[in-house]
Lab assay of single mutants.
Amino acid sequence: MATADDFKLIRDIHSTGGRRQVFGSREQKPFEDLVDLGWLKRSSVDSRATHYQITERGTSAAL
């Protein structure tokens, strides 16, 4: 179930172009929650960072 923080984060991601790069596993937790909701997808993972991209469902949630 989505929380107020989830909606705040997806709106922030949407307003800044729909993509986010995250460093460190602790910082990934809120983004992984949005992946579980179907609002974000992991577009790539490298040794230092994970890249996320907003989905259509995420765009709808952000509006």
Rank of each mutant, 00 (worst) to 15 (best):
K41P: 00
S15K: 12
A4W: 11
F7N: 03
D36M: 14
G17K: 05
F7M: 07
A4D: 12
S47H: 11
M1W: 12
L34H: 00
V22H: 03
A49C: 14
A61L: 04
R19K: 12
E56H: 08
I54K: 01
E56Y: 08
K29M: 07
W39H: 00
D36N: 14
H14D: 03
A62E: 01
V45W: 11
R48T: 14
D12A: 11
L40A: 02
R20A: 12
Q53I: 14
D33L: 15
D5M: 11
R11E: 05
G24V: 07
A61Y: 05
A2H: 05
Q28R: 11
W39E: 00
L37N: 02
L63N: 07
R20G: 04
D46C: 10
R11I: 12
L63C: 08
D12R: 09
I13E: 01
D33K: 15
T3L: 05
L37G: 02
R26G: 12
A62C: 05
D6M: 13
E27A: 14
F23Q: 10
F23T: 12
V22R: 03
S25V: 13
A62M: 03
V22M: 04
S15I: 11
K41N: 09
E27Q: 12
D6H: 12
D6C: 08
L9M: 05
R11C: 11
D6P: 05
F31R: 00
Q21Y: 13
W39F: 03
R57T: 13
T55A: 02
E27F: 12
I10L: 06
M1T: 12
T59R: 12
T3I: 04
R48G: 14
G17D: 06
W39M: 02
R48P: 07
G17E: 05
D12N: 08
F31W: 04
T59F: 06
Y52G: 01
L37H: 05
G24C: 10
R26E: 15
S43M: 15
T55K: 01
V22N: 03
G17M: 05
S44A: 13
A49T: 11
D6S: 08
G38S: 03
T55G: 01
I54R: 00
I10Q: 00
I13W: 01
H14T: 03
R26F: 13
D5C: 14
K41H: 11
K8D: 08
E32Y: 04
S15D: 12
Q28K: 11
T55Y: 00
S60D: 12
L34I: 02
G38L: 04
E56V: 09
Q28F: 06
V35L: 05
G24N: 13
H14V: 07
S47K: 11
V22Y: 03
D33M: 14
G38F: 04
G18E: 02
A2F: 06
T59Y: 07
L9S: 02
T59P: 01
K29A: 08
F31K: 01
K41I: 15
A61D: 02
D46M: 06
S60M: 14
S60P: 02
W39L: 02
H51W: 15
G38I: 02
R26W: 13
I13H: 01
T3N: 08
T50V: 14
L37D: 00
T16W: 07
R20E: 03
Q21D: 11
L9T: 03
R26Q: 15
A49W: 14
F23I: 13
M1C: 15
R42V: 15
Q53D: 08
T50W: 08
D36I: 14
T3D: 05
R19S: 13
G58K: 00
L34G: 01
G17Q: 06
Q21H: 11
L34K: 01
S25N: 11
E56N: 08
V45Y: 09
E56K: 10
I10S: 00
R19Y: 15
M1V: 13
S60R: 14
V45R: 10
S25G: 09
G24F: 09
V22D: 02
T3M: 05
R19D: 07
E27M: 09
G18D: 03
Q53R: 08
Q28V: 07
A49Y: 12
V45T: 10
V45P: 06
Y52E: 01
R48N: 15
R11G: 05
Q21A: 14
I54V: 04
T55F: 01
K41A: 12
T59W: 06
T59S: 07
H14E: 06
V35T: 04
D36R: 14
R11V: 12
A4L: 12
W39S: 01
I54W: 00
T55D: 02
D46T: 13
